[in-house]
Amino acid sequence: MKVASFRNHAGEVHIGVKLDEQLADLTAALEKYLVEEAGTDPQCAIEVAGERMPTSMLDLIKREEEGQADLQLTVSYINKVARQGKVLFSPSGDKITYGLEEVTLLTPVPQMYSRVFNMEYNYPAYEKVYGVIPPDDGKTAMFMMDPETVTGPRADIRWPKTATEVTSAVELGVIVGKQGKRIPQDKALDYVFGYTVVNDVTGISILKGMGPDRVCFPQAFYFTRAMIMDTFQPVGPFIALKDEIPDPQDVAAELRVNGKVVSKGNTRDMRCSVARLIEFLSQDITLEAGDLISTGAIGTLEYLPEAPVKVGDVIEAEIGKIGLLRNSVVP
C-alpha cells in the first residue's frame, strides 16, 4: 500500500491511497464504509471518519496501531468497491476517487515531521571514494535537519547564497510509526510506519576549503549549516507501507540529473541497517510517531552517492518500490 497527502480540487489537504493510476481519499472512503458496511448513521459517520481517518497524515500516524488497523480496513474496502473509470463519492458528497493527474501530491507528512534525523556516511563508498574516516562499526554520523526545510514532489530547490557548489543524494527515508525508547534491533521494524524517498541536498562547498593543517577537520563544524538551507530536503511522493517493502535492506535506488543516471545503489550496502539505526538513535532519544530518519546517501564506487547539481537541473530521485520524486533547481 502506498499512501500520500494531496491537495484536492477544493484546495484542501487530504490523505489518500494509491490504486494504480488513481488516488482514493481515505477519509471519504472510511465514511462510505461506515455507512454502507457498518450500518453507521450518516451524520455520525462523517464525524467518526474524521477522527479515525484524519485528513492530516501526522494525526493518522500518531494514532499508531489503531490508525494502522483503520488504514488496512479502509484500503481493503476501497479496493473491493473501486472500479477503473468510475468516480465514487462518500454519503456526504465528498469525492473519493481521483485520477493522479487531478490532484497535487504534497510531501507525505505536510504537517511537518516532528523531527528529521539525517544519517551520514552510511555506505562504504564514502570511505573509498571520498577518503572519509568511517565511523565505528555499528555507529554512524547523525545531524538533525529542520522540518521547515522539507518540501514535496515538484517543489523547487532554491540555489543558496552561501554555497558555490551544491550536491544532491537519494536516500531511503524511514517514517516512525510508534513512540519508543531503547528499542532493540530485533523489535525495531515494529516501530516503522513506512518508507519514503528523500533527496538530501547539501551546500557542499561550505564544507570545503577550510585549510589543510587543521588538527580536526573543521568542515565537520558546518555539516548542519550546509544542509539546513530552505527547500533542501524534498521528501515523497508516497509512503510505501511495510507490505510493499518487507525487507528494507533490499531496496534499489537511483538518482538522475536531467535524465542521466548519476547515483545508483542498494540499501543492502548500508553500514548500519535500518534496525540498527533505530536501536542506535533510540538509546537516549525517544523516537516519536511521525519522525523521519533519512538513512544516508546511497551510492557505489561506480555511481557515487553525491552528485553535483546546478541551476536549471531537473533531479529525479527514484526508489522503485516507493515512487519518483522530481524537483528542479531554480535561482
Binding site: 554520523a141 580536526c216 565537520a220 532519544i285 525517544t286
Partner: peptide
C-alpha cells in the same frame, strides 16, 4: 569513545555531536 586510528583525532567525534547532545 570514538575509537579510531591515529591522525583522525577530533573528526569522528564531530560525527556524534548531535547524538551526544540530544538525549531527552
Amino acid at each position: 569513545k570514538a575509537h579510531l586510528g591515529p591522525g583522525s583525532e577530533g573528526l569522528p567525534a564531530f560525527y556524534y555531536v548531535t547524538l551526544a547532545k540530544s538525549p531527552d
